[in-house]
């Protein structure tokens, strides 16, 4: 039986040198693993962080992004609801994002400082002009969720 090609071609873009166009079109099936709770929390308008369960550990503040194990002592972390208010630690308005960016531009990115949290979560300001130290509150995209970190955003408090 003769082998037949499936009919797709690699389009020629140039002859010298020979340059062809290879199509890539597929999905990655990505698991958030133990961090999934955080993203499920966003759908319930909750900001879920983690805290080390080891009373002897030197770090008792919250981690956001959450971690399943404590990097300081390798003990398990417990899930805790973090405050949904904070302040802008730094900001930048993105004008030329990379190809898969799902939000409109210009888009103000922010790093958020939250009391009791030892990290500064990266996010974006949905409304208003970002300024250093500006009080902000979390808003959650639950209507048509992207199921990514973009479901969390902030607006002036």
């Amino acid at each position: 039986m003769a082998i037949e090609l499936n009919g797709t071609t690699a389009e020629i873009l140039g002859e010298d040198p020979l340059v062809i166009k290879n199509r890539k079109d597929w999905y990655h099936i990505h698991s958030y693993g133990g961090w999934g709770k955080f993203f499920q929390g966003l759908l319930e308008k909750k900001l879920l962080a983690t805290r080390c369960t080891n009373s002897a550990c030197g770090e008792n503040r919250l981690w956001l992004p959450p971690r399943c194990e404590c990097p300081d002592c390798w003990h398990e972390m417990a899930w805790v609801e973090a405050p949904t208010v904070g302040t802008i630690f730094t900001h930048s308005v993105v004008l030329y994002p990379g190809a898969p960016f799902r939000a409109s531009t210009p888009c103000p990115l922010i790093s958020v400082e939250i009391e009791g949290v030892c990290t500064k979560l990266m996010s974006y300001l949905k409304e208003g002009k970002p300024e250093m130290g500006m009080p902000i509150k979390a808003v959650f995209n639950t209507e048509k969720p992207t199921n990514t970190i973009l479901d969390l955003a902030w607006v002036p408090a």
């Binding site: 992004p65 993105v94 030329y96 898969p100 960016f101 990266m122």
Partner: peptide, 18 residues
Amino acid sequence: CKDFESELGWMYAAYYAL
């Protein structure tokens, strides 16, 4: 970090701009 940061701009210049 693809879980918590890449979606925010898909652009390293933005992370340096912060």
